[in-house]
Computed example of a mutant assay.
Amino acid sequence: MDLFDDLPEPTQTSGPPPSAITAQLQTAPDEEEDRRLKRRREDAEEEKKDEIKKVCREGLPRLKGYVAARRGEREEMQDAHVLLPDMSSCLSSLPGHVSSVSYFAVFDGHGGARASRFAAENLHLNLAKKFPTGDNENLDKLLKKCLLDTFRQTDEDFLKKASSQKPAWKDGSTATCVLVVDDMVYAANLGDSRAVLCRMEAAAADGQKKLATLALSKEHNPTIYEERMRIQRAGGTVRDGRVLGVLEVSRSIGDGQYKRCGVISTPDVRRCQLTANDRFILLACDGLFKVFSADEAIKFVLNVLQEASVEQKDDLTEEELRFEAACQQLASEAVRRGCADNVTVILVSVCH
């Protein structure tokens, strides 16, 4: 707004005649009335914006996260996770017309638990600092850049801390995070932890809805052609499906000793809009997917959700109890099937 909007027009330098002074005094109340009307219009516009946001929020999916973690046969739990169904408290402000932001992430550490814990503690904070603000027409593009910058920053910060230790830390970690902005999912991942979406597609001829398992992440291991080529161009080698015969993943946070061999911290970022047919998002470390295919895991969860009996608890609804049971049973079943690795499962229910 022009700071001089409400000032009277400049008058002649020799001084106004008495009649002009009288006229100015007479118009002063009119100017005050104009200002009052202007303030009312601005207040009305703010109320309208708030009402639009409220209507948008009411039509958006409600997300709730559930987690189950098993140590398996490992001596140490090296996985970490974060559930932030409402991330707005971490943000200085939300972009225009954005009503809600949620964040869920799983980190699978190797060589120790320090990289996974560091990522769990810091990645979402770096994301909050870099999050777009204001009215942005190209929010999608800005959010993708924000995620890329966030992963790079988190990796650099951990490597700096790791190299300053005596002896230097050699920990590394996968990272799979799901950022939900209103009804748009942005999935970013490094390594072999995965995220999948359960969608019940339109009814078939027999009236049954068809199950679709949508991959939200991309696996990064050195046996994949593009990953192997990058490692070899950087002077590294791939033996027995591992970087230098040791590291199972080709992208990660940490792993400072492998960064010179083409191991990078640039995530794949995928975008997907939630629909009324979506039931839940599953995030899990590779411990689960060593003994379950993505389709099998989704069907296992659906079977538990459809079971008739659940033990009632005062603070949880029946739907919440079913998701909690499905999450716990899936992690336990992975261990029962012989997975000796750490297993972490996050289920994010999508309610409309």
Rank of each mutant, 00 (worst) to 15 (best):
K161C: 08
T154F: 06
S252E: 02
V249R: 00
G241F: 02
K259H: 01
D183E: 06
G262P: 08
L83C: 09
R230M: 04
E32K: 09
C351H: 12
K299C: 13
A187G: 07
R239E: 14
S293L: 05
S89P: 00
P16E: 15
A162K: 01
G172L: 03
K259V: 01
R270E: 13
S19R: 12
D171T: 05
D183N: 15
L159W: 01
A68I: 02
V185P: 05
A340P: 00
H220P: 04
T154W: 04
T11D: 13
D2F: 10
V291N: 08
P10E: 12
K290D: 15
F151D: 03
V269F: 04
L282S: 09
A294L: 00
G109L: 07
R35W: 10
D183P: 06
T27L: 15
D2M: 04
C261G: 01
L94K: 06
T223E: 11
T13R: 09
Q12A: 13
C90E: 15
D43L: 15
D155N: 07
R199P: 10
E46R: 12
E51G: 01
Q24L: 14
R199F: 07
S173C: 10
I253L: 15
S217W: 04
K64I: 03
Q273V: 13
T27P: 00
V82I: 10
A168K: 10
F104P: 03
A308W: 02
G15C: 06
V196D: 09
Y258F: 15
F289A: 06
Q257A: 15
M200I: 02
E248I: 03
V335S: 07
R35G: 15
